[in-house]
Design a protein around this nucleic acid. Structure first.
Lengths: 242, 242
DNA sequence: GAGATGCTTCGATCACGATCGAAGTATGAA
DNA sequence: TTCATACTTCGATCGTGATCGAAGCATCTC
């Protein structure tokens, strides 16, 4: 009866369409102002302000003042993972808002999930990282291997900086379009940042979609080759799993 | 704006305290009647009926008639995983209903998560299964190994029956008390059933808690030994991860 | 300073949905 | 048949919360 965590509180926060729209927008990773969020939610600034203060009180978002603007972001990675998880559930049930639109294929191919790469490319990247033994682990507890650490450093990623924060370096995040895991955590974020910094990929202006350049595609394929097909002995597992 | 899955729908379903209570009760795995659910939610039968039809329309629960009773269960494993995920998020944020009660330690030790074992014991079981290479995989895509299949068959689990259904055999489920994965899927269910059938464990009457008998404890420890401490070379990973 | 922009707070409206009483339907028991 | 139990449907009430207009506060520009 009265045991366990209170999911109703979170449910009610997400349950309002306007708030859900704002949260979805923030899942794009960019910090947005109250006015922008009001726009995407289709409500006036006053109502948006009310919603935002509720979301903040509930610990789902955070704000930082900058001049006369207030920039809102998701509170932390956990919120992003939780929302992405709900999206996966909703998508699988066919609960979509407005029928899969024209942007949909692009989103399914590659998109931002709060701060890391998601979609087909995100899943393929994690598959490859595991096959190459850069990352190992099972369940959603992933960790970087010693050899993986070297590879990442060679790529130009500052591992010391990643480990300095309290956030986990590796984390599995359930992809709503692929229904499989992709890499989250500070390493996931660093890799996406790397792609953008190198000019391999860039974010579409008003969407979560990520567009890879032609050289980006090549570099991505080189860096993250698809895992080799399993040996015959292992084929058996697939039969069992299917 | 109008792209992506609709999380507000699900949020609003879960957002009502009465419905959240019912769903939490159903996470116990037992099929419950409308009257029982009304009781746990603290509402009259009429209101409960209204809520239940909404939950069913939303695809979160299923009912089956049996005489003049109607037994309700969660619609499928996905719903259980989704709710357990939300609980994990809520618990981590300190959103508990009524302060961690006296039953809490028992729940954290071992409990039912819809149809499989969760809590400390659930997490330890999966850890051991992975260390013993019964189950492998990363992210939340787990699968049974060939040698693991033999071990499970030796335990008396009918793998053919498990693979006959469309449900995945192995699945990772995020544990809300441990914040790590435990084993879900039809194998997870079969293992819990095995424990109960063998008299090693039994469910507490009106709780999600699972009580292990003294012989059950011993058998569990024998079957699922804790993983060996990682070799020195791997310690490095922990430093990075922490 | 005056004006503009970004946002919050107040207050009033309004609609939706949670709630329950009462009546209706289905199944089982006597 | 009659009564009891399990549940649904209908209808009315009522409260909460979403919404926006108007006013207030803060910050930047000129």
């Amino acid at each position: 009866m009265k045991e366990g965590p209170d999911i109703a509180l979170i449910g009610s926060l997400i349950g309002d369409p306007a708030r859900a729209n704002m949260l979805t927008a923030l899942t794009g990773g960019k910090a947005l102002t109250a006015t922008e969020l009001a726009g995407t939610a289709g409500i006036t600034l006053q109502t948006a302000s009310s919603h935002l203060s509720k979301l903040e009180a509930g610990g789902l978002i955070a704000q930082r003042k900058q001049g006369r603007h207030r920039y809102f972001t998701l509170a932390d990675d956990d919120v992003g993972l939780m929302i992405e998880g709900l999206m996966g559930f909703a998508a699988y049930r066919g609960f979509t808002r407005h029928r899969t639109g024209p942007k949909d294929p692009a989103l399914r191919k590659a998109r931002v999930c709060y701060n890391h790469l998601a979609g087909d490319y995100g899943v393929r990247m994690l598959d490859s990282l595991i096959a190459e033994e850069v990352v190992s682990g099972a369940g959603d507890t992933l960790h970087l291997t010693a050899s993986g650490a070297d590879k990442m450093t060679a790529l130009g990623i500052d591992l010391a900086a990643l480990t300095r924060s309290r956030r986990p370096v590796c984390r599995a995040c359930l992809d709503w379009s692929e229904r499989r895991s992709h890499l989250a955590g500070s390493l996931g974020q660093a890799l996406l940042t790397l792609f953008v910094d190198k000019g391999w990929a860039r974010r579409e202006p008003d969407s979560r979609a990520i567009r890879f350049t032609s050289t980006g595609e090549k570099e991505f394929a080189k860096l993250f080759p698809p895992p080799a097909p399993p040996p015959v002995a292992l084929r058996h597992e697939h039969a069992i799993h299917a």
